[in-house]
Simulated assay, not measured.
Amino acid sequence: MTSFNGEKYIEEQIVSILEQITFEDELLISDDGSTDETTNIIESFVRNDSRVKLLHGPKAGLQSNFDFVLSQASGEYIFLSDQDDVWLPDKVKLTLSKLEIYNLVVSDCYIVDDKLRIISDSFYESNGLRVGVFSNLYKNSFLGCCMAFDRKILDCVLPFPKNIPMHDWWIGLVSSVKFNVKFTDEKLIYYRRHSSNASPTSQKSTNSLIVKIRHRIFLGTQVLFRLLNY
């Protein structure tokens, strides 16, 4: 998990994660310089639960912070998490059962507002689910907070290329070319959308057509370069 000024929702998210991971697991939270109560909230968990570890991020933005926290992960399986969502019960159990077969698993989710009231019953339906590298290069269906993957993928995608538009898009594209990817129908989190979201995913992009094309050319060439050198 990465965090930045997430005091309003992060405690609820941490609790929803700790309720379903084992004592052999770890919850890494890399804070990117919060100025509110976020780090104090995280530290209150750290003092009482050895699974929770607070890291201090590079203060260079969301993508750099995710790159950093992923580089510190020691487990065989990695679950990405936003600071403001809520994991539904059995998310970990159900996902791990799929990771015995696939290298990367993406679940569906409920899109909710700040009070956890459902806005959409399915991110897949709202966003338009696409499978395969070319379809996802055109429009990204890899929602980071719904993704989990094994260490083979982690070793391949790190470090992130500089200036990638989104970390989940990068991880998903690399995985689609090299590894076994599964989109599952289970809805395993409440994906909270509010005025302070760090990521614009599920919202219409405001980038110009030229910027969109540049992003896709850059991502495509970076994926090819990484896989040729992996």
Rank of each mutant, 00 (worst) to 15 (best):
S81R: 13
D82T: 06
Q83I: 07
V86P: 00
W87N: 01
W87K: 00
L88Q: 05
D90M: 08
D90Y: 02
K91S: 11
V92C: 08
V92Q: 04
V92N: 01
L94C: 12
L96E: 13
K98N: 08
K98I: 03
I101V: 15
Y102N: 15
N103H: 15
L104M: 13
L104Q: 13
L104A: 14
S107L: 09
S107R: 03
D108I: 00
V112R: 02
D113E: 10
K115Q: 15
K115Y: 08
R117G: 12
F123C: 12
Y124T: 01
E125F: 05
S126Q: 10
R130V: 12
R130P: 05
V131N: 09
G132Q: 08
F134M: 14
N136E: 12
N136V: 11
N136T: 11
L137V: 11
Y138C: 11
K139M: 02
N140V: 05
S141F: 05
F142G: 01
C145L: 02
C145P: 15
C146Y: 02
M147W: 03
F149G: 04
D150T: 08
D150G: 15
R151I: 10
R151S: 10
K152A: 06
I153G: 03
D155F: 11
D155E: 12
C156G: 07
L158R: 02
F160W: 01
K162P: 14
N163G: 03
P165K: 15
M166E: 01
H167T: 11
H167C: 10
H167G: 14
D168S: 11
D168E: 05
L173F: 02
S175L: 06
V177T: 07
F179W: 09
F179E: 09
F179I: 15
V181W: 06
F183H: 09
T184C: 10
K187A: 09
K187N: 07
L188H: 01
Y191T: 01
R192H: 04
R193Y: 00
H194Q: 10
S195G: 06
S195K: 13
A198L: 11
S199A: 13
P200G: 07
Q203F: 06
Q203E: 14
S205D: 07
S205V: 02
T206K: 13
T206A: 14
L209E: 12
V211R: 10
K212H: 06
K212E: 08
I213R: 01
H215S: 13
R216N: 12
